[in-house]
Design a protein around this nucleic acid. Structure first.
Lengths: 287, 287
DNA sequence: CCTTGTTTGGAAAAATCTTTTCACATGGGG
DNA sequence: CCCCATGTGAAAAGATTTTTCCAAACAAGG
């Protein structure tokens, strides 16, 4: 069984009575700004607590560390543990299944990907991209790669319901130039490109960018080369222990964009949904 | 007025397109364990990200720092500012965004859906369904509804890579009888049907069931009527505060099925992937 | 006022870390 | 197929940090 590894904070409390005056001065400074005040070099840390370097060195040894680097390392480990701590780790996902069941392992990995994806979104860019997607004055084009084509398709289906002037660039890249023909400055192109990145897509992005089209790129954590010319790019963590990549986080980000766009386009969108429903009812009558 | 001093996270996003491959590798490592992963010495940080020391040194200069110590200092300042801020640290998804931001609300709802979905999966059925999907003796058909068509398409793309004998039933339900013609007992039909449930799909399911085809249904929490004739059904929680349903949990379940099927079909699947890669390389040569 | 034991910080030596240089590797373009 | 541009890491050079040592300062008791 492994020992619980006491935190530096606990160690200080524990050894406080043995500490000398200067050492206590440093201990106070550290506790008042924990743990940041202990993460610099010993010289900086010492001078900002207004004690000498050897005082700090002696003290960390009293706490049981071999030297300052070990003390430093301990603080960092604590911080790291804390970083992954607040995220409520679900032990088991599928009810009565062991942790080792593929379902649980898969759920854990993908959840981690989702967390990473969302915590790395810049809300400013997100809002700006949504404003772009909600600009119904201009055309919105959607395109995806070999795998992400399905996501582009999903995006198209929903955006078409949310707003007018949406065009889906078909899977066959041979026809893409036809679409570029009609692209105008101010239009928006929503691209999906996860590895392995496709040269055709990149070329399309360049052509569109040259014509003043605003590019919104949804890519993976390693970033497609298109990121260079895109106005907004969003990175999705997609890696799973498998021969292919998981697009659950991609899907979730896409849906977030759709939800935000819908909100931005309200109430015109509500009107569209009502008309759409009416149309579905009509097709049912015909049958 | 002092400048807002961008965080290192922001700097990385901002300069991401200029970064080289190894630099990105380090950037990823840092983002995944932020900021602890950047608070050690440059040598330690570099080796734990599996890049060389100069790579890190060059990168921090690209970010605008004079050297590694300045970068280190910036990270510590951020940490310090965070620690002295409001102690009430609620779980946030998008960094530095208020809880009320759509992104965070959306993430919370969808995460709840995912939890519900996965904790309600019966692992026995899951394993049995996977065995069915991995049965390469028989044909596998995939079909989806108006919205879930994209998911069916995604499923098709991946299952086609994993195993032979996979057929995608096109969007146009008028042609579905043609496919039914060739369905045989023991074949598998993977159906997606979330509300609003489609009569065409139900009719197709009945026809297939009559012919001894095994039905695997992926539906929503309220269950499509097809569940009555399906051999396995999986319910995905899809409700979000919106006019449409979220299919992130559906996507995740689908990917879990693909991952499990891939594992069940190994090593034939590996062989297929290798051949697929070779074919892609060939098409690149043609261009 | 002296003595003794302890604490403290300056300074130098030792160790470590950071930066720069340079040669090799890699991959795209002619 | 070769060449060139760019990216990468090994290693040396330089800078900093960590540690050790020691003398000065200090407090308490005789």
């Amino acid at each position: 069984m492994t020992k619980p590894a006491p935190t530096v904070r606990e160690l200080i409390r524990q050894h406080y009575s043995e500490l000398t005056q200067s050492e206590r001065k440093f201990a106070q400074a550290l506790l008042e700004n924990y743990p940041a005040a202990g993460l610099a070099s010993i010289t900086i840390v010492a001078s900002s607590a207004e004690v000498s370097t050897p005082t700090v060195a002696r003290m960390v040894q009293k706490l049981g560390f071999k030297g300052y680097p070990q003390f430093h390392q301990a603080l960092r480990s604590e911080l790291e543990a804390k970083g992954s701590g607040p995220t409520k780790r679900r032990e088991k996902w599928a009810a009565e299944a062991p942790d080792s069941h593929l379902l649980n392992r898969f759920a854990q990995t993908v959840t981690r990907n989702i967390e990473q994806t969302f915590s790395n979104i810049d809300t400013g860019s997100f809002d700006a991209a949504v404003a772009q997607l909600a600009d119904t004055e201009h055309q919105l084009y959607v395109v995806g790669g070999r795998i992400t084509r399905s996501l582009a398709d999903y995006a198209f289906t929903h955006f078409q319901a949310v707003r007018p002037k949406v065009t889906y660039l078909t899977a066959s890249s041979a026809t893409w130039p036809h679409y570029v023909l009609d692209m105008a400055a101010g239009d928006t192109l929503l691209l999906f490109d996860v590895r392995r990145y496709e040269a055709n897509l990149e070329r399309l992005a360049e052509l569109a960018a040259e014509r003043g089209v605003r590019l919104i790129l949804i890519t993976d954590q390693w970033a497609s080369p298109i990121a260079r010319v895109a106005h907004f790019s969003f990175n999705c963590w997609v890696e799973i222990p498998s021969a292919w990549d998981s697009n659950t986080s991609t899907m979730m980000l896409l849906e977030a964009l759709i939800a935000a766009t819908q909100e931005a386009c309200w109430p015109e969108t509500r009107d569209r949904y009502e008309r759409l429903d009416a149309l579905f009812d009509l097709t049912r009558l015909f049958r």
